[in-house]
């Protein structure tokens, strides 16, 4: 399997990369970890004229805390997320999600920015980002804008990112102590995409759920946010019956594509099941039981 020919540039700075993007008139693709793009090119589903390799731009790397947010360079690899002591302490959901992504070798190349910007609803970071209410920094030669992860995903492989823009940074919140979180992913085997996955972030006041985010992976054209389920649970003491109702509400928004992993009915039910499990685990964590 051989990719078609293309030109290759490896800029050393973000501004060089943005200039190249500007000049390329939509014919370029940004090469991050390459583990989605290069296979697509080998299958000849993608045939860009130019690859802009952003792997040699130091400013796109690194994880640092800025106030109550953690700023993550788009070219930070999955294994770097996994190994980050800062994330483990301040936003442990993220390394937990990474554990479920691909395999050790792929996590050495795959980046958080690539995973997010690719726009594939099967990827694991997008739903997580929505649940965390993360922000993305998009830069172009004309300037920069900061967009909410909640607004970023428009359709399959279709995001707010313009052809001349580069995702440079991801900003996730420092999770306050007592935050409950969970990512529950059902998959056939290591390295496979989710049959369905659910991400939950919540905080409790006493027994009451103060706020909750519930998002879903690979059961629609974009990562989904189960807002009706969130509304149902907010302000309530979550019991089994409410969990069940929330799962049903989450299932109602699913519209998965059928494949060898399962048909629509199965994937929808699994989105519900993963939602149940994620809520329960998040509550246990919020209560310090796990």
């Amino acid at each position: 399997m051989i990719p078609p020919s293309f030109s290759y540039r490896a800029p050393a700075t973000v501004s060089e990369a943005l200039a190249l993007l500007n000049e390329s008139d939509g014919e370029a693709k940004v090469l991050a970890g390459g583990h989605s793009l290069l296979p697509m090119m080998k299958f000849r589903f993608a045939e860009p004229a130019l690859l802009i390799d952003i792997g040699r731009i130091p400013e796109l790397k690194g994880i640092r805390q800025v106030g109550n947010r953690i700023h993550i360079g788009a070219m930070t690899t999955e294994n770097e997320l996994l190994e980050s002591a800062l994330l483990k302490e301040k936003c442990p959901l993220l390394p937990e999600v990474v554990r479920w992504i691909a395999d050790p070798q792929v996590r050495n190349r795959g980046t958080i920015g690539g995973d997010i910007a690719h726009g594939d609803p099967a990827n694991d970071h997008p739903a997580t980002m929505r649940a965390l209410e993360a922000e993305f920094v998009l830069k172009s030669a004309d300037g920069e804008r900061v967009v909410a992860a909640d607004d970023f995903y428009l359709g399959t492989y279709y995001t707010l990112l313009e052809a001349n823009e580069l995702l440079t940074e991801i900003r996730v919140p420092v999770l306050p102590p007592g935050t409950g979180y969970a990512y529950k992913k059902l998959k056939r085997k290591t390295g496979d995409f989710a049959i369905a996955a659910a991400c939950v972030v919540l905080s409790l006041t006493g027994d009451k759920c103060e706020r909750i985010a519930i998002t879903l992976t690979n059961v629609g054209p974009t990562p989904l946010r189960a807002e009706t389920a969130e509304k149902l649970l907010t302000g309530k003491a979550i019991d089994d019956q409410l969990v069940e109702q929330a799962a049903q509400l989450a299932m109602e928004i699913c519209d998965p594509a059928e494949d060898l992993r399962g048909d629509k009915e199965y994937k929808i039910h699994m989105a519900g099941e993963m939602t149940r499990r994620a809520i329960r685990e998040a509550i246990d964590r919020a209560r310090g039981r796990k």
Partner: peptide, 10 residues
């Protein structure tokens, strides 16, 4: 890394 998914220029 998996060398089938790395370009030599990288």
């Amino acid at each position: 890394v998996k060398a089938c998914t790395v370009l030599t220029v990288q």
